[in-house]
Amino acid sequence: MSLDPRINRLDLKRVNDGEQTASHLITWEVFHQDKRGKQPVHAGIVHASTPEQALMFAKEQYARRGKTANLWVVKTADVYTFNSEDEAIFETTPEKTFRDPAFYKVRERIEAFQSKNKL
């Protein structure tokens, strides 16, 4: 006899034992977009069998509070990443200033030109 009336209503003996293998289904990576116009951001995973079901579950696990514009799900198996040993490829040498807007400073040149030509 449980203190929980819900539990007393269950047929707890109705359990089929046995091994279970990966029965919690595959996982899906969930991306959450909080507002139209914003980037969807990775929020976590859900276990589900189909994209429809993954979306159903993602809605309750990742969108039950706050604002949501949309959710994306993608099979974990379909996501590719770099190996973390290759992290070094993201280090850029500091000389790559030609890609920075701040690198381009022509004001001095213009002023020199103006004073030289009395403009």
């Binding site: 539990i7 209503r9 269950l10 289904l25 589900a48 809605k59 309750e60 696990q61 039950r64």
Partner: peptide, 18 residues
């Protein structure tokens, strides 16, 4: 609401509870 915590999958508990 009786399913909260005893459903067939954690994700489905959440859905039923909501």
């Amino acid at each position: 609401s009786e399913w909260t915590g005893i459903g067939p999958m954690l994700e489905e508990d959440l859905a039923f509870s909501s």
